[in-house]
Amino acid sequence: MEIKTHREINPKYSGVPLAVETDKFASVILELTEEMKADEKGLVHGGFIFSAADYCSMLAVNHPNVVLAKAEVKFLKPAVVGEHIVFEGIVIEKNENKRTVEVQGKNEQNEIIFTGKFYCVITPKHVLD
């Protein structure tokens, strides 16, 4: 499993890669911690869920210059501190330098809590160069 993109991302907030198949598939696991909670009941802020799903989509493409251009997402069930969410991303469309990745996030009961389409672009050089 060679990771070619987002190599300095913090796994504490964006998840730990489980599998990477360049330009095909990736999976990431995110442990939901106290730092992520939005309220006293332990509801996890959706931004952390989105971050892990986005990271999963980047890994599915796995190119050093891949960036996110657009995302269409649905939060289907709440996520709670203490859970582990597994995200799986599949590249469903390739068009020159563009990729579309479908991502699902599932809780430990195998319930889908998140779905999304991530529209990625591979730039000729790093976006900050």
Rank of each mutant, 00 (worst) to 15 (best):
T33E: 14
E34T: 08
A26S: 15
N62E: 14
M36P: 02
Q104A: 01
Q109C: 02
K70N: 11
C56I: 12
E96F: 02
Q109K: 14
I113C: 09
P64W: 08
I112N: 00
V61F: 02
K98N: 03
K106P: 04
K4N: 15
A60M: 00
F25Q: 00
K74W: 03
E72W: 01
F25H: 12
F75K: 09
S57G: 11
T115W: 03
G42A: 13
K12M: 12
I112D: 00
G89D: 11
D23N: 09
S14G: 15
D54F: 06
S51Y: 10
K117M: 11
I3A: 04
E72C: 02
I90V: 08
V80M: 15
K77L: 14
C120T: 08
F48Q: 04
I85V: 14
D23G: 08
A71I: 05
E93N: 13
T5K: 07
N62Q: 07
N110Q: 13
G89T: 00
K106Q: 00
N62I: 06
L128H: 03
I29P: 01
S57N: 05
F87V: 06
I90H: 08
S27L: 11
C56S: 03
N107Q: 07
L128A: 14
K117Y: 11
V16A: 05
F25I: 09
K12E: 02
V127P: 15
Y119C: 05
V127Q: 00
K4R: 13
K74I: 01
C120E: 14
N97Q: 12
V101K: 02
G46R: 11
Y55N: 12
V61L: 09
K74S: 03
A26E: 12
K4P: 03
V121H: 00
V20F: 03
G15I: 04
T33C: 01
T100W: 05
F114Y: 14
I9V: 15
E31Y: 08
N95Y: 09
V61H: 03
V67H: 02
P78Q: 06
L32E: 04
C56M: 06
P64N: 04
E96G: 01
H84E: 15
V81N: 08
P17H: 05
E31K: 15
I3P: 02
F48S: 06
L30F: 13
I85F: 08
V86G: 01
L76N: 06
M58S: 10
T5A: 11
D54K: 06
Q109G: 02
L18D: 11
T115Q: 11
P78V: 04
E40Y: 13
G15E: 06
E35M: 09
K41R: 12
F87D: 00
K24L: 04
T100S: 03
A26Y: 01
